[in-house]
Simulated assay, not measured.
Amino acid sequence: MEEQGKTFDATDLRILAILLKDSRTPLQEISAAIKLSTTSCWNRIKRMTDSGVIEAYTVKLDLARLGYHDTVIVQVTLDSHSDETLYEFGRALESMPEVLEALLISGDYDYFLRIAVKDTRDYERLLRERLYKIPGIRHSKSSFVLRTLKKAETPLT
């Protein structure tokens, strides 16, 4: 793997795999697992953080335990592709915490949204009160996720 002219080796990838499983893994445990001194291990982590390979340390939430039992995939087509329309659509989505992910895509639709909702009534409310009030939406198509077969944040996992 290479990032901005810097090469990352198998040891770096092993460190990243450990951090992906649990970003709170103590440095001593990471060092022991990869058979490297804590100083060398820390230097590698710092280099990957400074170069932007490690963007953030975060937590994964079980959305169902928080009451969000359903995930909806929404494909959206906009009326216009002007910079202003795209900007305003993006701003509107940022204000909607239920929207977990928004991707600008190629093909028949313009956007692919992943939305967390409590149930179908919650989704219907979200459509009426928030999503369909965003100017410029020409068409949307919704699909409820029945089961997640694989979920990875990176090809390393």
Rank of each mutant, 00 (worst) to 15 (best):
E101C: 07
R91K: 11
T120F: 15
L63C: 08
E88S: 06
E124Y: 04
E124L: 12
E98G: 15
P97Y: 09
R91A: 09
S95D: 08
S80K: 13
Y87L: 06
F112H: 03
G107F: 09
T71M: 14
L126Y: 02
L127V: 07
L93M: 15
G107M: 11
Y68S: 15
R65P: 11
S95H: 02
A64D: 07
F89M: 03
K118N: 06
D122F: 10
A64P: 08
V117R: 00
R130W: 03
I54A: 01
D83V: 14
E101P: 12
R121P: 01
I54M: 07
E124A: 00
V76N: 06
E98M: 13
T71F: 07
A102P: 10
L93H: 03
L93F: 12
E88C: 07
V59T: 12
S80V: 14
V53M: 03
L100D: 01
L127E: 02
D108S: 09
R125L: 06
L78R: 09
T85G: 00
L63H: 10
D108C: 02
L86H: 01
L86W: 05
R125S: 01
M96Y: 05
L66M: 13
D122P: 06
T120R: 13
L104C: 03
A56R: 05
Q75M: 14
Y109G: 01
T58H: 03
V99S: 04
V76A: 03
Y111N: 01
V76T: 11
R121S: 01
